[in-house]
Structures are given as C-alpha cells and as structure tokens.
C-alpha cells in the first residue's frame, strides 16, 4: 500500500482490537502458568491475576512425587507414539491403491469409505464391538478402532494423486514392486502431507480423554487427560459448598499438570503452524 498513510484512525482501532483478540487467547494460558507457580492460599482467595504470588515450584515437586501423574504422562507418550505411528502407516498404505485411477474396484471402495462419514452408529455399538474384541482396558482400544481417519485418508489420497506419476512409471518398468514403490518413492516424497496429517493424529491422541475414559477401567493405565479430568470433576464436586476453600487446594497441582501436558504441544505449535494451516485448508477444500 504505497503512498497511503500508515497509521489512520481505522488501522489504530483495528490494531487495538486485534491486540485484544491476541490477549484474550493468550491470557488464559498465561493464567494457568501463573497459578501453577503461585502459592495456593493466594489462588483460592482470588488474588492471582497477572503475576505469580508467593512464587514457588512446590506444585511441580508435588506433580513429580504424585502417585498417578508421572505414570499418566508416560502412558500418554506411549499411546500417542504408538497411535500416531499406526495411524500414519495405515493411512499412508491405504491411500496408495486408492490413488490409482484404474485400481480394481476403486469406485466401490471409495463409496464404502466415504459413506462412513455419514453413518455414525454412535457410542454404544462402538463400545460393544471393542468389548467383543476383548480390547476393553487395553491400549489397543485407543489405537486400533480409530486407526484411519477418513478425512485424513482422503486428503492423503488427493496428495498422492497430485504427485507426478512419471517416477512411479519408471520404477514399475524397472521391475520394482508396488510395495517398494510406495515405501521408497511415494512415502518419502509425501513427507509434507504426512507431516500435516500426522500433526492432526498426534493432537488427537495427545488430547483425547473421552475414549480412554470409557475404554480403560484400570486407573494405572489412564493417560494424562483422564487424570486431569478426574481433578476437574473433583473440584467440581467440591465447588457446591462454596466456603470450603481447602477443597480447592489442588488448584496449583492441577495447573502444574496442565502446564506439563501442554509443553510438547506448545513446543511443536510454532513449527507446526505451516502444516496445521495446510491441513485445515486441504480439509476445507475436500469438505
């Protein structure tokens, strides 16, 4: 915009409103961090707003010494790693045959896959199936029944289709098997797309609480989000007797756990935004 004044009244108001938006998104996250570093007594009196009061790392020490939280953290890492790996492998392999225009039965297979986006039998039939397969209370229940997300499969299939087929053809003429072509040519070339859908799979596993909550019975196997949820419900239950401030004692502990659970997400988030935006866009185009 050459030749226009840089700071008009309009752009000042606009800028101010956008700063408000940025603050509104940042503040709740900052607040959690501040509370996790504050003295609980100050928190329950509602004295903590912008900066930690009674700065201490007590809550973090408690988290590390807690009987459930460190294990839950390891559980989350395990479920997320295994789950994302299975997701990516299954999706990367499944999308390949479907990306061939003249693949046998392609039209019917695609119909079968796309239809599932409209048929959602609901929680109960899924639960009964997982139960029938003996997966209740095992980590398999978290990684197998959602091994492929239809949306991500279609995104990856489109990406494969958009890749030049000449290398593929050349490899085929040289006698390479489809398996070989997929794993040594297609998948390495599809890394940006895989990173994009991998990010969504990763976030899905890392942040999920509902499926672990219904499929796992043994609290030793709980991931972090379920433990956090139990802390919420605990506070919730005690909030009805408003005078009992001591019931809110785990505030700092809860928020320290949240901070620790957010660390990996916040670490990848600035780098992941390119892939994130791409994933949202691809999704919107397909949608």
């Amino acid at each position: 915009m050459v030749g226009q004044p840089r700071f008009t009244l309009f752009s000042l108001i606009n800028g101010f409103l956008l700063i408000c938006v940025a603050m509104a998104t940042l503040y709740p996250v900052w607040y959690i961090f501040v509370v996790s570093l504050s003295d609980t007594a100050h928190v329950v009196q509602g004295k903590v707003f912008l900066w930690p009061k009674g700065l201490n790392l007590e809550a973090y020490r408690e988290v590390l010494e807690d009987s459930k939280i460190p294990r839950a953290y390891l559980n989350t890492i395990f479920y997320t790693t295994l789950g994302t790996t299975i997701n990516l492998l299954m999706t990367a392999v499944a999308a390949y045959p479907l990306s061939h225009k003249d693949f046998f039965g392609r039209k019917w297979f695609m119909l079968m896959i796309v239809l599932t986006m409209f048929l959602n039998p609901g929680i109960i039939p899924n639960y009964l199936l997982v139960q029938k397969l003996g997966m209740i209370d095992t980590f398999w229940a978290l990684v197998i029944p959602n091994a492929i997300w239809t949306f991500e499969l279609i995104i990856l299939k489109s990406f494969y289709e958009s890749m030049s087929s000449s290398i593929r053809e050349a490899a085929r003429i040289d006698g390479a098997s489809e398996f070989r072509i997929l794993f040594s040519i297609i998948i390495p070339l599809a890394k940006p797309a895989l990173a994009s859908i991998g990010l969504f799979y990763f976030m899905g596993h890392w942040n999920s609480y509902f499926l672990p909550m219904i499929y796992l019975n043994d609290s030793v196997k709980y991931p972090l989000q379920v433990v956090l949820r139990d802390m919420l419900i605990f506070n919730e239950g005690n909030r009805s007797n408003l005078v009992d401030a001591a019931a809110l004692a785990p505030q700092a502990l809860k928020n320290a756990t949240i901070v620790l659970s957010m660390i990996p997400v916040l670490m990848i988030y600035p780098f992941a935004q390119k892939y994130f935006a791409k994933g949202v866009m691809l999704g919107a185009e397909k949608g």
């Binding site: 940025a22 942040n207 989000q225 956090l228 506070n235 809110l248 505030q251 949240i258 988030y269 600035p270």
Partner: peptide, 29 residues
C-alpha cells in the same frame, strides 16, 4: 503474531479448555 496466537486454543485439549472455563468462572476465585 496475532494470527499465530489466535489459533493456539485449537491445540489445547477439551479438558484443559474446560478447566480454564471452570477456573475463570469460579464463584470464589
């Protein structure tokens, strides 16, 4: 910067978001 910050919440779990809601709206603190 504003754009990057604005989609930070999309990376947070629903448990964390609800925890924020409960904390911010708490009648005591």
């Amino acid at each position: 910067s504003v754009q990057t910050l604005s989609y930070l919440p999309a990376f947070l779990s629903v448990v964390i978001i609800c925890s924020m809601v409960i904390d911010f709206l708490s009648p005591t603190h």
